[in-house]
Design a protein around this nucleic acid. Structure first.
Length: 391
RNA sequence: GGCGGCAUAGCCAAGCGGUAAGGCAGAGGACUGCAAAUCCUUUACCCCCAGUUCAAAUCUGGGUGCCGCCUCCA
Protein backbone atom coordinates (compact mmCIF):
# COMPACT_ATOMS: atom_id res chain seq x y z
CA UNK A 1 0.00 0.00 0.00
CA UNK A 2 1.36 3.35 -1.05
CA UNK A 3 0.54 6.69 0.44
CA UNK A 4 1.42 10.21 -0.62
CA UNK A 5 3.44 11.80 2.15
CA UNK A 6 3.37 15.59 2.26
CA UNK A 7 6.69 15.49 4.07
CA UNK A 8 8.57 13.88 1.18
CA UNK A 9 6.28 15.11 -1.56
CA UNK A 10 5.89 11.65 -3.04
CA UNK A 11 4.12 8.36 -2.66
CA UNK A 12 5.75 6.00 -0.22
CA UNK A 13 5.18 2.42 0.77
CA UNK A 14 3.13 2.42 3.95
CA UNK A 15 5.23 0.81 6.65
CA UNK A 16 3.67 1.23 10.04
CA UNK A 17 5.61 1.38 13.27
CA UNK A 18 4.15 -1.94 14.34
CA UNK A 19 3.03 -4.49 11.78
CA UNK A 20 -0.73 -4.70 11.27
CA UNK A 21 -1.28 -1.73 13.54
CA UNK A 22 -1.83 1.81 12.40
CA UNK A 23 -2.18 4.86 14.57
CA UNK A 24 -4.00 7.78 13.05
CA UNK A 25 -4.49 11.27 14.36
CA UNK A 26 -6.89 13.55 12.55
CA UNK A 27 -7.26 17.22 13.34
CA UNK A 28 -10.80 17.83 14.41
CA UNK A 29 -12.90 20.96 14.41
CA UNK A 30 -12.77 24.07 16.49
CA UNK A 31 -16.25 23.96 17.88
CA UNK A 32 -17.69 27.45 17.65
CA UNK A 33 -20.44 26.78 15.12
CA UNK A 34 -21.90 24.15 12.81
CA UNK A 35 -19.61 22.43 10.36
CA UNK A 36 -20.02 22.99 6.63
CA UNK A 37 -19.65 20.69 3.63
CA UNK A 38 -15.99 21.64 3.24
CA UNK A 39 -15.31 20.52 6.77
CA UNK A 40 -17.02 17.25 5.96
CA UNK A 41 -14.51 16.34 3.27
CA UNK A 42 -11.64 15.36 5.59
CA UNK A 43 -14.15 13.63 7.85
CA UNK A 44 -15.33 11.39 5.05
CA UNK A 45 -11.89 10.98 3.51
CA UNK A 46 -10.22 9.86 6.71
CA UNK A 47 -13.22 7.86 7.85
CA UNK A 48 -13.05 5.98 4.57
CA UNK A 49 -9.30 5.54 4.94
CA UNK A 50 -9.81 4.18 8.40
CA UNK A 51 -12.48 1.74 7.26
CA UNK A 52 -10.35 0.60 4.34
CA UNK A 53 -7.31 -0.03 6.52
CA UNK A 54 -9.50 -2.02 8.88
CA UNK A 55 -10.83 -3.97 5.89
CA UNK A 56 -7.25 -4.70 4.89
CA UNK A 57 -6.58 -6.23 8.27
CA UNK A 58 -5.03 -3.38 10.19
CA UNK A 59 -5.78 -2.80 13.81
CA UNK A 60 -6.56 0.90 13.60
CA UNK A 61 -6.37 3.34 16.47
CA UNK A 62 -8.01 6.58 15.48
CA UNK A 63 -7.85 9.77 17.48
CA UNK A 64 -9.60 12.99 16.59
CA UNK A 65 -9.44 16.04 18.80
CA UNK A 66 -11.76 18.89 19.53
CA UNK A 67 -10.34 22.36 19.85
CA UNK A 68 -12.59 23.75 22.53
CA UNK A 69 -10.28 26.52 23.71
CA UNK A 70 -9.67 29.14 21.07
CA UNK A 71 -9.96 32.80 20.11
CA UNK A 72 -12.91 32.19 17.84
CA UNK A 73 -14.79 30.38 20.55
CA UNK A 74 -14.12 33.24 22.92
CA UNK A 75 -15.30 35.80 20.39
CA UNK A 76 -18.40 33.80 19.69
CA UNK A 77 -19.16 33.41 23.36
CA UNK A 78 -19.06 37.17 23.75
CA UNK A 79 -21.48 37.61 20.89
CA UNK A 80 -23.85 35.00 22.20
CA UNK A 81 -23.42 35.79 25.85
CA UNK A 82 -22.73 32.18 26.59
CA UNK A 83 -19.80 30.91 28.57
CA UNK A 84 -16.97 29.83 26.24
CA UNK A 85 -16.60 26.24 27.39
CA UNK A 86 -20.36 25.73 27.44
CA UNK A 87 -20.61 27.03 23.92
CA UNK A 88 -17.78 24.79 22.76
CA UNK A 89 -19.44 21.82 24.41
CA UNK A 90 -22.73 22.59 22.76
CA UNK A 91 -21.13 22.64 19.34
CA UNK A 92 -19.34 19.39 20.08
CA UNK A 93 -22.78 17.87 20.52
CA UNK A 94 -23.90 19.45 17.28
CA UNK A 95 -20.80 18.13 15.60
CA UNK A 96 -21.64 14.59 16.67
CA UNK A 97 -25.15 14.98 15.42
CA UNK A 98 -23.87 15.95 11.97
CA UNK A 99 -21.07 13.41 11.90
CA UNK A 100 -23.36 10.60 13.02
CA UNK A 101 -25.85 11.48 10.32
CA UNK A 102 -23.02 11.37 7.81
CA UNK A 103 -22.23 7.92 9.14
CA UNK A 104 -18.75 8.87 10.33
CA UNK A 105 -17.49 6.31 12.81
CA UNK A 106 -16.64 7.76 16.17
CA UNK A 107 -12.93 7.95 16.87
CA UNK A 108 -11.48 5.64 19.49
CA UNK A 109 -10.66 8.74 21.47
CA UNK A 110 -11.97 12.28 21.08
CA UNK A 111 -9.68 14.31 23.36
CA UNK A 112 -10.43 17.93 24.11
CA UNK A 113 -7.91 20.66 24.65
CA UNK A 114 -9.69 21.89 27.77
CA UNK A 115 -9.20 18.52 29.44
CA UNK A 116 -5.46 18.38 28.84
CA UNK A 117 -4.30 21.66 30.27
CA UNK A 118 -2.02 19.93 32.79
CA UNK A 119 -0.31 17.92 30.06
CA UNK A 120 0.06 21.01 27.96
CA UNK A 121 1.61 23.01 30.77
CA UNK A 122 4.09 20.24 31.51
CA UNK A 123 5.06 20.05 27.87
CA UNK A 124 5.61 23.79 27.66
CA UNK A 125 7.78 23.67 30.76
CA UNK A 126 9.93 21.01 29.17
CA UNK A 127 10.24 23.03 26.00
CA UNK A 128 11.40 26.03 28.03
CA UNK A 129 13.91 23.83 29.86
CA UNK A 130 15.29 22.56 26.59
CA UNK A 131 15.66 26.05 25.20
CA UNK A 132 12.89 25.79 22.66
CA UNK A 133 10.57 28.27 24.30
CA UNK A 134 10.65 31.47 26.32
CA UNK A 135 8.27 33.39 28.49
CA UNK A 136 7.44 37.08 28.15
CA UNK A 137 4.88 38.80 30.38
CA UNK A 138 2.79 35.69 30.91
CA UNK A 139 2.97 34.59 27.28
CA UNK A 140 5.15 31.72 26.18
CA UNK A 141 6.54 31.57 22.66
CA UNK A 142 8.19 28.83 20.70
CA UNK A 143 11.74 29.73 19.60
CA UNK A 144 11.55 28.69 15.97
CA UNK A 145 15.22 29.29 15.21
CA UNK A 146 16.14 26.71 17.82
CA UNK A 147 14.48 23.97 15.81
CA UNK A 148 16.79 23.41 12.85
CA UNK A 149 14.33 21.49 10.74
CA UNK A 150 11.57 24.07 10.93
CA UNK A 151 9.88 24.36 7.55
CA UNK A 152 10.52 20.81 6.40
CA UNK A 153 6.85 19.96 6.01
CA UNK A 154 5.69 23.09 4.21
CA UNK A 155 8.88 23.60 2.22
CA UNK A 156 9.64 27.01 3.60
CA UNK A 157 12.80 28.45 5.04
CA UNK A 158 12.80 30.53 8.16
CA UNK A 159 14.82 33.18 6.31
CA UNK A 160 12.20 33.53 3.59
CA UNK A 161 9.45 33.79 6.14
CA UNK A 162 11.26 36.49 8.06
CA UNK A 163 11.89 38.57 4.95
CA UNK A 164 8.39 38.14 3.58
CA UNK A 165 6.59 38.60 6.86
CA UNK A 166 3.18 40.11 6.29
CA UNK A 167 1.96 40.00 9.82
CA UNK A 168 2.33 42.80 12.28
CA UNK A 169 5.07 41.73 14.59
CA UNK A 170 4.63 41.34 18.29
CA UNK A 171 7.64 43.28 19.56
CA UNK A 172 8.06 40.98 22.51
CA UNK A 173 8.85 38.01 20.32
CA UNK A 174 12.49 37.26 19.56
CA UNK A 175 11.60 36.56 15.96
CA UNK A 176 8.50 37.28 13.94
CA UNK A 177 8.10 33.58 13.15
CA UNK A 178 7.88 32.54 16.79
CA UNK A 179 4.44 31.36 17.76
CA UNK A 180 2.45 31.24 21.00
CA UNK A 181 2.41 28.15 23.17
CA UNK A 182 0.64 29.88 26.01
CA UNK A 183 -1.40 33.06 26.01
CA UNK A 184 -1.90 35.21 29.06
CA UNK A 185 -5.58 35.72 29.83
CA UNK A 186 -7.15 39.05 29.06
CA UNK A 187 -10.02 40.22 31.23
CA UNK A 188 -13.15 38.18 30.68
CA UNK A 189 -11.39 35.31 28.97
CA UNK A 190 -11.43 31.74 30.24
CA UNK A 191 -8.15 30.84 31.91
CA UNK A 192 -6.21 28.22 33.81
CA UNK A 193 -3.46 28.74 36.35
CA UNK A 194 0.05 28.13 35.14
CA UNK A 195 3.64 28.84 36.13
CA UNK A 196 3.38 31.94 33.92
CA UNK A 197 0.16 33.18 35.43
CA UNK A 198 -3.41 32.78 34.33
CA UNK A 199 -3.86 31.96 30.70
CA UNK A 200 -4.70 29.36 28.07
CA UNK A 201 -2.83 27.22 25.57
CA UNK A 202 -2.09 28.27 22.00
CA UNK A 203 -3.70 26.35 19.23
CA UNK A 204 -0.83 24.18 18.01
CA UNK A 205 0.37 22.75 21.29
CA UNK A 206 -2.83 20.86 22.09
CA UNK A 207 -2.53 18.63 19.03
CA UNK A 208 1.05 17.52 19.55
CA UNK A 209 0.40 16.95 23.24
CA UNK A 210 -2.78 14.92 22.77
CA UNK A 211 -1.45 13.03 19.77
CA UNK A 212 1.65 11.84 21.59
CA UNK A 213 -0.25 11.20 24.78
CA UNK A 214 -2.66 8.76 23.18
CA UNK A 215 -0.61 7.40 20.31
CA UNK A 216 3.00 7.62 21.43
CA UNK A 217 5.95 9.74 20.38
CA UNK A 218 5.73 8.58 16.80
CA UNK A 219 2.41 8.13 15.09
CA UNK A 220 1.81 6.56 11.71
CA UNK A 221 -0.60 8.85 9.93
CA UNK A 222 -1.56 12.40 10.70
CA UNK A 223 -4.29 13.82 8.55
CA UNK A 224 -6.09 17.06 7.92
CA UNK A 225 -6.93 19.67 5.32
CA UNK A 226 -4.05 21.11 3.33
CA UNK A 227 -4.61 24.51 4.89
CA UNK A 228 -3.23 23.01 8.09
CA UNK A 229 0.17 22.22 6.61
CA UNK A 230 1.35 25.66 7.53
CA UNK A 231 1.54 26.78 10.21
CA UNK A 232 -0.39 24.24 12.25
CA UNK A 233 1.27 20.96 11.31
CA UNK A 234 4.67 22.56 10.88
CA UNK A 235 4.38 23.81 14.43
CA UNK A 236 3.22 20.47 15.73
CA UNK A 237 6.38 18.90 14.33
CA UNK A 238 8.52 21.59 15.92
CA UNK A 239 6.89 21.09 19.30
CA UNK A 240 6.86 17.32 19.32
CA UNK A 241 10.26 16.63 17.81
CA UNK A 242 12.05 19.25 19.87
CA UNK A 243 10.74 17.40 22.88
CA UNK A 244 11.26 13.77 21.93
CA UNK A 245 14.04 13.93 19.31
CA UNK A 246 12.04 11.33 17.44
CA UNK A 247 10.07 11.64 14.23
CA UNK A 248 6.60 12.79 15.21
CA UNK A 249 4.68 11.50 12.21
CA UNK A 250 5.62 8.93 9.59
CA UNK A 251 3.04 9.91 6.98
CA UNK A 252 1.39 13.28 6.63
CA UNK A 253 -1.79 13.13 4.58
CA UNK A 254 -3.63 16.24 3.46
CA UNK A 255 -6.89 16.50 1.60
CA UNK A 256 -7.62 19.14 -1.03
CA UNK A 257 -10.32 21.73 -0.64
CA UNK A 258 -13.93 21.79 -1.49
CA UNK A 259 -14.42 24.81 -3.72
CA UNK A 260 -17.29 26.83 -5.10
CA UNK A 261 -16.64 28.45 -8.46
CA UNK A 262 -13.08 27.29 -7.90
CA UNK A 263 -12.81 29.24 -4.68
CA UNK A 264 -12.20 27.57 -1.38
CA UNK A 265 -15.34 27.05 0.65
CA UNK A 266 -14.69 28.75 3.94
CA UNK A 267 -16.42 30.41 6.79
CA UNK A 268 -14.51 33.64 6.28
CA UNK A 269 -15.49 33.90 2.61
CA UNK A 270 -19.08 33.12 3.51
CA UNK A 271 -19.49 30.80 0.52
CA UNK A 272 -20.36 27.73 2.51
CA UNK A 273 -23.21 25.28 2.89
CA UNK A 274 -23.88 23.85 6.30
CA UNK A 275 -23.54 20.08 6.38
CA UNK A 276 -26.93 19.71 7.99
CA UNK A 277 -28.58 21.74 5.24
CA UNK A 278 -27.05 19.46 2.65
CA UNK A 279 -28.06 16.37 4.61
CA UNK A 280 -31.61 17.66 4.66
CA UNK A 281 -31.72 17.41 0.90
CA UNK A 282 -29.52 14.41 0.21
CA UNK A 283 -28.97 11.15 2.08
CA UNK A 284 -25.62 10.55 3.74
CA UNK A 285 -24.48 7.87 1.30
CA UNK A 286 -24.93 10.26 -1.61
CA UNK A 287 -22.98 13.00 0.13
CA UNK A 288 -20.23 10.54 0.99
CA UNK A 289 -20.17 9.20 -2.55
CA UNK A 290 -19.87 12.71 -3.92
CA UNK A 291 -16.99 13.56 -1.58
CA UNK A 292 -15.09 10.37 -2.31
CA UNK A 293 -15.64 10.15 -6.05
CA UNK A 294 -12.76 12.55 -6.59
CA UNK A 295 -9.25 11.73 -5.39
CA UNK A 296 -8.76 13.14 -1.91
CA UNK A 297 -5.83 15.37 -2.82
CA UNK A 298 -7.56 17.09 -5.73
CA UNK A 299 -9.75 20.13 -5.38
CA UNK A 300 -13.44 19.31 -5.54
CA UNK A 301 -15.78 21.89 -6.96
CA UNK A 302 -19.28 22.04 -5.61
CA UNK A 303 -22.53 23.15 -7.17
CA UNK A 304 -26.15 22.14 -6.94
CA UNK A 305 -25.99 19.68 -9.79
CA UNK A 306 -23.10 17.65 -8.40
CA UNK A 307 -25.03 15.98 -5.63
CA UNK A 308 -27.89 15.19 -7.96
CA UNK A 309 -25.41 13.59 -10.32
CA UNK A 310 -23.88 11.64 -7.45
CA UNK A 311 -27.34 10.47 -6.47
CA UNK A 312 -27.96 9.06 -9.92
CA UNK A 313 -24.55 7.45 -10.16
CA UNK A 314 -24.86 5.82 -6.75
CA UNK A 315 -28.36 4.74 -7.69
CA UNK A 316 -26.90 2.78 -10.56
CA UNK A 317 -24.74 0.79 -8.16
CA UNK A 318 -27.66 0.23 -5.85
CA UNK A 319 -29.87 -0.96 -8.67
CA UNK A 320 -27.37 -3.69 -9.42
CA UNK A 321 -27.44 -4.81 -5.80
CA UNK A 322 -31.22 -4.90 -5.98
CA UNK A 323 -31.24 -6.86 -9.23
CA UNK A 324 -28.81 -9.42 -7.82
CA UNK A 325 -31.01 -9.85 -4.79
CA UNK A 326 -34.09 -10.28 -6.93
CA UNK A 327 -32.31 -12.73 -9.19
CA UNK A 328 -31.18 -14.88 -6.30
CA UNK A 329 -34.66 -15.06 -4.86
CA UNK A 330 -36.29 -15.97 -8.15
CA UNK A 331 -33.61 -18.22 -9.49
CA UNK A 332 -35.03 -21.72 -9.70
CA UNK A 333 -31.89 -23.69 -10.30
CA UNK A 334 -29.01 -23.50 -7.90
CA UNK A 335 -26.62 -24.65 -10.58
CA UNK A 336 -23.86 -22.34 -11.60
CA UNK A 337 -23.54 -22.43 -15.33
CA UNK A 338 -20.50 -21.65 -17.42
CA UNK A 339 -21.55 -18.07 -17.96
CA UNK A 340 -21.88 -17.50 -14.26
CA UNK A 341 -18.44 -18.89 -13.56
CA UNK A 342 -17.04 -16.64 -16.21
CA UNK A 343 -18.85 -13.71 -14.61
CA UNK A 344 -17.50 -14.51 -11.19
CA UNK A 345 -13.98 -14.70 -12.56
CA UNK A 346 -14.24 -11.29 -14.11
CA UNK A 347 -15.80 -9.76 -11.04
CA UNK A 348 -13.01 -11.15 -8.96
CA UNK A 349 -10.46 -9.66 -11.32
CA UNK A 350 -12.12 -6.30 -10.98
CA UNK A 351 -12.19 -6.72 -7.25
CA UNK A 352 -8.42 -7.06 -7.28
CA UNK A 353 -8.18 -3.94 -9.38
CA UNK A 354 -10.38 -2.14 -6.92
CA UNK A 355 -7.98 -3.07 -4.15
CA UNK A 356 -4.99 -2.11 -6.26
CA UNK A 357 -6.54 1.31 -6.85
CA UNK A 358 -7.23 1.83 -3.18
CA UNK A 359 -3.73 0.68 -2.31
CA UNK A 360 -2.31 3.29 -4.64
CA UNK A 361 -2.59 6.33 -2.45
CA UNK A 362 -6.19 5.62 -1.69
CA UNK A 363 -7.42 6.26 -5.21
CA UNK A 364 -11.15 6.14 -4.58
CA UNK A 365 -11.96 7.68 -7.95
CA UNK A 366 -10.32 4.83 -9.81
CA UNK A 367 -11.69 2.28 -7.38
CA UNK A 368 -15.22 3.54 -7.91
CA UNK A 369 -14.68 3.27 -11.65
CA UNK A 370 -14.05 -0.44 -11.14
CA UNK A 371 -17.22 -0.70 -9.11
CA UNK A 372 -19.17 0.58 -12.10
CA UNK A 373 -17.44 -1.93 -14.34
CA UNK A 374 -18.51 -4.69 -11.98
CA UNK A 375 -22.00 -3.29 -11.95
CA UNK A 376 -22.11 -3.25 -15.72
CA UNK A 377 -20.82 -6.81 -15.96
CA UNK A 378 -23.49 -8.07 -13.61
CA UNK A 379 -26.26 -6.10 -15.28
CA UNK A 380 -25.32 -7.55 -18.65
CA UNK A 381 -25.31 -11.04 -17.28
CA UNK A 382 -28.61 -10.53 -15.53
CA UNK A 383 -30.21 -9.01 -18.61
CA UNK A 384 -29.69 -12.25 -20.54
CA UNK A 385 -30.34 -14.48 -17.54
CA UNK A 386 -33.70 -12.88 -16.96
CA UNK A 387 -34.57 -13.34 -20.60
CA UNK A 388 -33.76 -17.02 -20.39
CA UNK A 389 -35.69 -17.34 -17.17
CA UNK A 390 -38.68 -15.75 -18.80
CA UNK A 391 -38.72 -18.29 -21.60
C1' G B 1 7.02 38.90 -3.38
C1' G B 2 8.12 33.51 -1.43
C1' C B 3 6.48 28.32 -1.64
C1' G B 4 3.12 24.66 -3.71
C1' G B 5 -0.80 22.59 -6.80
C1' C B 6 -3.81 22.08 -11.15
C1' A B 7 -5.09 22.42 -16.75
C1' U B 8 -8.00 15.34 -20.17
C1' A B 9 -15.01 14.99 -24.13
C1' G B 10 -21.10 19.28 -23.03
C1' C B 11 -20.14 18.58 -17.47
C1' C B 12 -17.45 15.63 -13.67
C1' A B 13 -13.20 12.47 -13.37
C1' A B 14 -9.15 8.28 -13.71
C1' G B 15 -4.71 7.46 -16.30
C1' C B 16 1.57 9.68 -15.02
C1' G B 17 6.41 6.66 -21.16
C1' G B 18 3.63 2.25 -25.38
C1' U B 19 -1.39 5.90 -28.91
C1' A B 20 -7.43 7.66 -23.80
C1' A B 21 -11.20 3.84 -17.14
C1' G B 22 -15.68 5.29 -15.17
C1' G B 23 -20.05 8.54 -14.04
C1' C B 24 -23.70 12.36 -15.54
C1' A B 25 -25.92 14.55 -19.78
C1' G B 26 -26.98 13.75 -25.34
C1' A B 27 -28.15 10.71 -29.93
C1' G B 28 -29.87 6.03 -32.25
C1' G B 29 -31.65 1.10 -31.35
C1' A B 30 -33.54 -3.37 -28.14
C1' C B 31 -36.85 -5.08 -24.24
C1' U B 32 -41.57 -3.59 -21.78
C1' G B 33 -49.12 -2.72 -22.14
C1' C B 34 -47.10 2.44 -20.38
C1' A B 35 -43.23 3.70 -17.19
C1' A B 36 -38.92 2.59 -14.38
C1' A B 37 -34.66 -0.33 -14.65
C1' U B 38 -31.39 -2.77 -17.87
C1' C B 39 -28.82 -4.12 -22.57
C1' C B 40 -26.44 -2.80 -27.54
C1' U B 41 -24.27 1.24 -30.56
C1' U B 42 -22.40 6.24 -30.51
C1' U B 43 -19.64 11.11 -28.53
C1' A B 44 -11.63 13.32 -26.98
C1' C B 45 -6.54 17.34 -32.26
C1' C B 46 -5.38 15.11 -23.50
C1' C B 47 -4.14 24.42 -22.58
C1' C B 48 -0.03 26.43 -26.13
C1' C B 49 5.21 26.25 -28.05
C1' A B 50 9.84 23.83 -28.22
C1' G B 51 12.82 19.50 -26.75
C1' U B 52 14.17 14.20 -25.05
C1' U B 53 12.62 9.24 -26.92
C1' C B 54 11.60 4.00 -31.59
C1' A B 55 7.29 5.78 -28.66
C1' A B 56 4.61 11.54 -24.44
C1' A B 57 -1.79 13.22 -21.94
C1' U B 58 2.27 11.08 -19.30
C1' C B 59 9.50 13.25 -18.98
C1' U B 60 12.40 18.32 -19.68
C1' G B 61 12.40 23.71 -20.71
C1' G B 62 9.48 28.05 -21.79
C1' G B 63 4.59 30.28 -22.05
C1' U B 64 -0.69 31.14 -20.77
C1' G B 65 -4.76 30.50 -17.41
C1' C B 66 -6.85 29.08 -12.68
C1' C B 67 -6.31 27.86 -7.47
C1' G B 68 -4.11 27.26 -2.55
C1' C B 69 -0.69 28.44 1.61
C1' C B 70 2.38 32.39 3.61
C1' U B 71 -3.15 35.65 9.15
C1' C B 72 -8.00 32.08 11.61
C1' C B 73 -9.43 28.13 8.30
C1' A B 74 -10.72 21.11 6.87
Amino acid sequence: MRVYNTLSGRKEELVTLEPHRVKIYACGPTTYNYIHLGNARPLVVFDTLRRYLTYRGYDVTYVQNFTDVDDKIINRSREEGEEALKLAERYIDEYFEDADTLNILRADIHPRASQHIEDIIKTIEKLIDKGFAYEVDGDVFYRVKAFKEYGKLSGRSVEDMLSGARVEVDERKEEAVDFALWKAAKPGEPFWDSPWGQGRPGWHIECSVMATKYLGDTIDIHGGGSDLIFPHHENEIAQAEALTDKPFVRYWMHNGFLTINSEKMSKSLGNFFLLREVLDKFPADVVRFYLIATHYRSPLDFDDGKLEEARKALGRLKTTLMLVDEFQQNSVSADTDLKEIELLDKVNELRQEFIAAMNDDFNTARAIGHLFEISHLINSYLATAFQINAL
